[in-house]
Amino acid sequence: MFLERVCIATDGSDLAVRAAQMGVQLARSGAGRIVTVSVAQPHFSVPEGADAAGSEATDAQREFERVRRAVRAHVATVRRIADASGVACDSATPLASNPGPEILRVAQAHGCDLIVMGTHGPNDANRLFAGSVAQYVLANSSIPVLLLRDPREAAPPDFVEEAAS
């Protein structure tokens, strides 16, 4: 498979940066083009006793500005990794409450051949599945997906080979 464009999804975590480094190296082996996507997810809460109209509007505006700054920083990090490797980089920072569908939309709109993203391994409650965003992308993508996990978070294997006698 020749890679013309790799989509790298990032949330700014250390694991996402490691996945970006891998995605950039894969892109270098092909046409040397990536698109990086970081989805802005604002989180709103209204404290008890808050002024109904005035403070909510300014709090919402501050939250939008906060998430926009964060996603711009995330894609800027991936862009620096790409630039250092001589890989062309486009970026997208959509606003959505659910990042999975936006990652797929961006990858499809840019004609990507592969989606690369980090995933925090399964938690104690569910050892079989990746994180919810990664799981959504993996389950719903028509584009191949490469999920990279932190080996320190991997569950030990259920089977261990016996030493030869």
Rank of each mutant, 00 (worst) to 15 (best):
M1V: 11
F2W: 10
L3K: 00
L3Y: 11
R5M: 07
A9P: 08
A9N: 09
G12I: 07
S13K: 12
L15P: 11
A16V: 08
A16E: 11
V17N: 10
R18L: 08
A20N: 10
Q21T: 05
V24P: 01
L26C: 09
R28T: 06
T36K: 06
A40F: 10
Q41A: 10
H43D: 13
H43Y: 14
S45F: 13
V46E: 14
A50E: 12
T58Q: 13
A60N: 12
Q61A: 08
E63A: 09
E65C: 09
E65G: 13
R66G: 03
R66M: 09
R68Q: 13
R69Q: 15
A70T: 14
V71M: 07
A73E: 15
A73F: 11
A73I: 07
V75G: 04
A76Y: 12
A76N: 11
V78P: 00
V78W: 00
D83T: 06
A84I: 04
V87S: 00
A88I: 04
S91W: 06
A92D: 06
A92S: 10
L95S: 09
S97L: 10
G100T: 02
E102W: 00
I103L: 05
I103E: 03
L104R: 05
L104T: 05
R105C: 02
Q108M: 07
Q108E: 15
C112H: 04
D113I: 00
L114V: 00
I115R: 01
I115V: 05
M117R: 11
M117I: 04
M117L: 14
H120I: 05
P122S: 08
P122E: 06
P122T: 07
P122K: 12
N123P: 02
L128N: 11
G131I: 03
S132G: 03
V133S: 02
Q135A: 13
Y136G: 01
L138Q: 15
A139R: 15
N140T: 10
S141V: 09
S141W: 03
S142K: 11
S142E: 08
V145C: 04
L146W: 03
R152L: 10
R152P: 06
A154K: 13
P156F: 05
P156K: 13
P157C: 10
D158G: 13
D158H: 14
F159L: 15
F159H: 09
E161N: 09
E161H: 13
E162Q: 15
E162F: 08
A163Q: 10
